[in-house]
Design a protein around this nucleic acid. Structure first.
Lengths: 210, 210
DNA sequence: GTCTATATACCGATAGAC
DNA sequence: GTCTATCGGTATATAGAC
């Protein structure tokens, strides 16, 4: 049950987001979404139309939220490396505060984006373009190696998504392979990734941080 | 319809693998798996028991196959960097020749491994352990930076999976964002990843390749 | 081992009273 | 806007003849 923090529609979107993340589109049950949102099933249909429209509304909200945060990060007057760091850690923070999103997106990656309607894909593409422009700027200025842009780009996005989405699976892995214990709960995904990727992209010798 | 290349059971596993990859566990229909395998639905149940057992059989087969290939790569008498390259490209080749596998695994990552039975998780953990041992060996010998092992490790696996799984989605992204066109079809994921990751992990200056 | 026909349950969606 | 009751379709799984 959602804490009833907002309007009925917001509660429905919140409940749907978590269930789509846990079980996927086909696995999520409309009855349970309604129950968890604290509303009647008929009310859910009254507010959102149908299951697919509900799914689209969830994705649209998430993508627009991330896009807005990224625009702020990109607009800052920092060096390229600092902006890259900021963008990656913005994505990291976003994925940590919206843990449903990476899980939903990973499923979309797996299914080929079957359930993503154009309005969602467009937002996703705009986010990809932001990262891409940073990569290209780095290559032009000589700060980044000229790696295959698409592959690099997918690696950046993919590693971010997986690092965040994989948290629930980790406990099951640790239970079987104790080698994979983790020191603390709150790992700073953004900080790790920006370091790791900047190092991997850099043309300069490692060890120097601006 | 499967080309009827093997036993009924093999055909069923092949058909199930592709449908689980396309639609996920909940989205895949037993009727369609049977149809695509060219067998009757009752025959499918006769051979594999039920849907969950079928899913486990598919994953078990895939994981054991990858594990076997990796053991060969690890056993070679090469330098650490060469072995790392070999392991990553072995994973890349495997994921390209079994394109269903990364898609299925990505969904498992998203769901927290709900459908993975112990026999599958154990194989998965053994594969993780192989990569981990390479990372640790590199840190001990001073060839690799001392990054957070778990995070690095997930980045390696995650980037591999996403790079391979994302192919079907790419065309939809390209359709909307023409910036993301790709030069050719057959990208060598293994070669790209091993280069990218070795560079990212290396303590030495870039530019030198053994 | 192979098939047809069917049991059983569940899910998405709606009708219609209030 | 909110609810109960329910429809129609479809899913997994099995019974039982051959």
């Amino acid at each position: 049950m959602v804490q009833d923090g907002g309007t009925a529609r917001q509660n429905i979107l919140d409940a749907a987001s978590s269930l789509f993340a846990e079980r996927g589109f086909e696995g999520a049950r409309v009855d349970e979404i309604a129950r968890r949102a604290g509303v009647n099933k008929a009310m859910l249909y009254y507010h959102v139309g149908n299951k697919q429209a509900l799914y689209t509304a969830v994705l649209k909200r998430n993508v627009e939220c991330l896009e807005k945060e990224l625009l702020d990060s990109l607009g800052s007057q920092l060096s390229l490396a600092e902006r890259f760091r900021l963008v990656i850690s913005t994505i990291g923070s976003f994925l940590q505060s919206f843990p449903d999103h990476p899980r939903i997106m990973l499923r979309e990656f797996a299914s080929g984006g079957d359930r993503m309607e154009p309005v969602v894909i467009e937002g996703f593409v705009r986010i990809l373009a932001m990262i891409r422009s940073l990569l290209e700027e780095g290559v032009r200025s000589g700060e980044f190696r000229a790696t295959d842009p698409l592959m690099t780009h997918i690696s950046v996005v993919g590693a971010s998504l997986v690092l965040n989405a994989v948290q629930p699976l980790r406990s099951r892995v640790v239970a079987i392979g104790p080698t994979f214990e983790v020191p603390g709960e709150g790992v700073d995904v953004g900080a790790f990734l920006s370091d790791f990727l900047l190092h991997g992209l850099s043309t300069s010798s490692p060890g120097e941080k601006p």
